[in-house]
Amino acid sequence: MDRTDPWWQRVDEAAQLITSTVNAAAAQAGRHGVYTPPPGTPEPRRRRRPASLRHLAEVIRTHRMAPGVAVDKDVVGAILAGELSHLTNPVAVVAVARASHRIAGIPFGDEDVRRLAVAVEHLTALVDEAREADRRAPDLLPVPRAPAALVVEARPVPRPEEPRIRRRRLAPVLGVVAVVIAGAAAGIVYLQRDTARAPAGGDVDCRDGVDGDEIITDAATVFDDERATRLSPTLDFDAMNGSARYAGHQGRIYYWGRAGSEDATPHSGGTRVRWKVADGPWHSCATALPVTERGYVHSPAVPTTIDGRAVTIQVCLWRNTPNRENCTAEISTG
Rank of each mutant, 00 (worst) to 15 (best):
R230S: 15
R230V: 10
L231D: 14
L231A: 09
L231V: 07
S232R: 11
T234R: 14
T234E: 03
T234Y: 06
L235P: 08
D236P: 08
D238P: 07
A239W: 00
M240K: 05
M240T: 12
G242P: 13
G242H: 12
G242K: 06
G242T: 13
G242V: 07
S243A: 14
S243Y: 08
A244E: 05
A244H: 05
A244I: 06
R245Y: 04
R245L: 14
R245M: 08
Y246P: 02
A247D: 09
A247V: 03
A247Y: 09
G248S: 02
G248Q: 03
H249G: 11
Q250N: 15
G251N: 06
W256Q: 00
G257Q: 04
R258T: 07
R258F: 00
R258H: 00
R258M: 03
R258D: 00
R258E: 05
A259P: 00
S261R: 03
S261G: 04
E262I: 10
E262G: 06
E262A: 11
E262S: 12
E262W: 13
D263N: 14
T265N: 14
T265V: 10
H267I: 02
H267R: 11
H267W: 08
S268G: 13
G269N: 04
G269P: 10
G269W: 04
G269T: 15
G270T: 07
G270W: 04
T271R: 08
R272P: 05
R272C: 13
R272I: 07
R272Y: 03
V273W: 05
R274I: 00
W275D: 01
W275R: 02
A278F: 10
A278C: 07
A278H: 09
D279K: 08
D279H: 14
D279V: 02
D279S: 04
P281C: 04
P281D: 10
W282G: 12
W282E: 15
H283Y: 10
S284Y: 01
S284I: 06
S284W: 00
S284H: 08
C285Y: 01
C285K: 01
A286V: 15
A286M: 06
A288R: 08
A288C: 12
A288D: 15
L289C: 09
V291K: 08
V291W: 02
V291C: 12
V291A: 15
T292K: 07
T292G: 06
T292I: 13
E293D: 13
R294T: 03
R294L: 11
G295V: 02
G295R: 11
Y296P: 03
V297I: 14
S299C: 09
P300V: 05
A301D: 02
A301K: 02
A301P: 01
V302S: 14
P303S: 13
P303N: 12
T304N: 07
T304K: 02
T304M: 09
T305F: 15
T305K: 07
T305Q: 15
T305G: 12
I306S: 00
I306Y: 02
D307P: 04
